[in-house]
């Protein structure tokens, strides 16, 4: 259901969408049932067709079973939903599959610095590649990430990956993702972090191996053009090309000012 609204670009996004469907059907069943009974009673027992009300206390077992049985059934539904929720949770947050590469994201008011590990696959070495507001990854590789913050809380959020994690100053938080679809997606801060929270965006680009190589070289040669700024100016990437964009002349004066400050 969710993929109608937003692409699935990571290995676990499919599971998460599946979980959403499970919830929608499980809870939706009860929702529709409850609502229909409510509306039916509202219509069936209106004064004009039911001029005299009955006297029912609901204290007798034969009466209260009508609310007790459904509520046992709901416990059963809850157990199913909990199982689904925890399965997905454990997969995303509690497991750490072996890594192919590692990156680091550092948040600060109000921009992102990314460290790519470079050819040696290790952080904090000579060949690290640093970017601002632009993260590059290769499709089909398992990435570990390290999240840090320089000042206040931020949140590393990539909706297309169904991924979100707070960044806390003074701590390093690890996690993982595996991109499965090429393209450029929004990466945004999802924790109130002050006046500029609303502009604290970045772009994550999922590359094929060749284009990843090319980009990394371009960054080191200084010939690289920021995917993030490109997107802001021109609108977004192939995935959303079918969606018409809001015209840029609607941008607020603040947008321009803040943008030019980068």
């Amino acid at each position: 259901m969710l993929d109608y609204f937003i692409p699935r670009a990571s290995s676990f996004s499919g599971d998460m969408d599946g979980l959403f469907n499970l919830i929608v059907y499980g809870v939706g069943f009860w929702f529709v049932l409850t609502l229909s009974v409510l509306v039916y009673f509202m219509i069936r027992f209106r004064h004009s067709v039911s001029p005299k009300a009955a006297y029912i206390t609901g204290e007798k077992h034969s009466e209260s079973k009508w609310v007790h049985w459904p509520h046992y059934a709901i416990i059963v539904f809850d157990v199913v939903l909990i199982a689904g929720a925890i399965m997905v949770w454990v997969q995303v947050k509690q497991t750490l599959p072996p890594k192919d590469d590692i990156i680091r994201a550092v948040g600060q008011q109000w921009s992102w610095s990314f460290v790519h590990s470079g050819p040696d696959g290790k952080l904090d070495t000579e060949d690290d590649v640093l970017t601002v507001n632009d993260l590059h990854v290769e499709v089909g590789k398992v990435y570990h990430f390290e999240l840090q913050s320089r000042d206040v809380l931020h949140n590393f959020s990539i909706p297309a990956f169904r991924l979100k994690q707070d960044m806390i100053p003074g701590r390093t938080i690890t996690g993982w993702f595996e991109p499965t679809q090429e393209g450029t997606f929004d990466l945004q801060c999802a924790e109130m972090c002050g006046h500029g929270h609303g502009i604290m965006g970045a772009a994550i680009t999922v590359h094929s191996p060749e284009s990843y190589q090319a980009t990394m070289e371009a960054i080191q040669n200084g010939t690289y053009e920021s995917e993030y700024l490109k997107r802001l100016k021109e609108g977004s990437t192939p995935i959303n090309a079918k969606r018409p964009q809001v015209s840029q002349n609607e941008a607020s004066p603040y947008t321009e000012k803040l943008l030019s400050s980068f």
Binding site: I6, A160, D186, A190, H197, G198, N240, P244, T255
Partner: peptide
């Protein structure tokens, strides 16, 4: 929300995925 629109953002134009006309 299902399209991933975040809260507390004053202007969605910085997030091209969210800036679409629909």
């Amino acid at each position: 929300g299902m399209a991933g629109q975040h809260r507390r953002i004053y202007n969605y134009q910085h997030f091209p995925d969210l800036a679409s006309a629909d």
